[in-house]
């Protein structure tokens, strides 16, 4: 009797909120939103070539300077663009997590080794550059759905296989995520049950690691099996891996792309911002 009561209370105490799987589901949906540019944003309306050009300007710019004011200005621009491109909470969260991790790491470095801040300065600079590029990448690729991205690459004379590969990869993402989720569920249900979290959760970490490694084999064999038909189908649908799409097909595909004055304006404005940032950097730090 008492044992039953005790059982009942422990059962009542341990409520699953349904968050454990809902969060996986949310991550999945969020990835889809990001991959398929469903949120819109200022870059989503632009021609893919303009978006790629915009990205190159912001991604290359930071590597051409050591001036901190320039980097700070570019960083602010990149952050503003990322928010305006609606990158969504998942990417922003991951980005902040990475950035805060860096800061914490630098803090530990200063605390342990003390004194010499010039090394830290160098590290801050590199982190800032990486942050700008990350933000610009997120803003650009969140705004390009797979068709636009592959058309943009084709328009810029990238090999047809690359454009197709990008588009096909996007098509496979949801399938892979679903399949991975099923496989991980299989491990959860059929594998050894967790024996508690262990010190600092080391058991949980080991379990997650083991499941991740073991999921790899079935996931990729299953995917390889699927693609057999795909390769044959591509042949019948006029896309061969050796020849790619024929030139007439390429022209048809790209006929819908329009590079408008607004796209040009975006590139000019971005270039102007970069130039201003470099100029400001030179003006504010003449001794460098």
């Amino acid at each position: 009797m008492t044992a039953a009561v005790a059982d009942a209370t422990t059962e009542r105490d341990r409520k699953r909120k349904g968050r454990d799987r809902a969060s996986v589901e949310w991550v999945k949906v969020e990835l889809m939103r990001v991959a398929y540019a469903t949120r819109g944003g200022f870059l989503a309306r632009r021609d893919p070539r303009a978006v790629l050009g915009w990205y190159v300007l912001l991604a290359v710019g930071p590597w051409l300077t050591y001036s901190e004011p320039t980097l700070v200005i570019l960083g602010v621009v990149a952050l503003g663009s990322a928010l305006a491109a609606r990158i969504g909470p998942l990417l922003l969260g991951l980005f902040l997590f990475g950035l805060l991790g860096q800061v914490a790491y630098l803090g530990v470095m200063v605390f342990v080794f003390g004194g010499n801040t010039s090394a830290i300065e160098g590290l801050v600079e590199v982190s800032l550059k990486l942050a700008i590029i990350s933000l610009a990448s997120m803003a650009a690729f969140v705004s390009l759905d797979p068709e636009k991205l592959s058309d943009g690459l084709a328009a810029l004379r990238a090999p047809a296989v690359i454009g197709f590969g990008v588009s096909y990869a996007y098509r496979m993402i949801p399938l892979l995520i679903d399949e991975l989720q099923t496989i991980i569920d299989g491990h959860r249900l059929r594998g050894a049950p967790p024996a508690g979290h262990g010190l600092l959760g080391w058991r949980t970490m080991r379990r997650i690691g083991a499941v991740a490694v073991q999921s790899f084999y079935p996931l990729f064999l299953n995917t390889a099996k699927r693609t057999r038909t795909t390769v044959e189908a591509l042949e019948t649908r006029g896309f061969t891996l050796t020849g790619g799409a024929n030139p007439a097909g390429r022209r048809l595909r790209l006929a819908a792309l329009r590079f408008t004055w607004a796209d040009g304006l975006l590139l000019v404005a971005t270039l102007a911002v970069v130039v201003v940032a470099f100029w400001a950097g030179a003006a504010l730090a003449p001794h460098r």
Partner: peptide
């Protein structure tokens, strides 16, 4: 038979237009 793997483009209309575009 496994027709799902025959679809290579993200959206339905792009997929249906895929072959006619490739053949120009």
């Amino acid at each position: 038979q496994d027709f799902g793997n025959q679809l290579v483009r993200p959206r339905v209309r792009d997929d249906v237009a895929f072959a006619p575009i490739n053949f120009g």
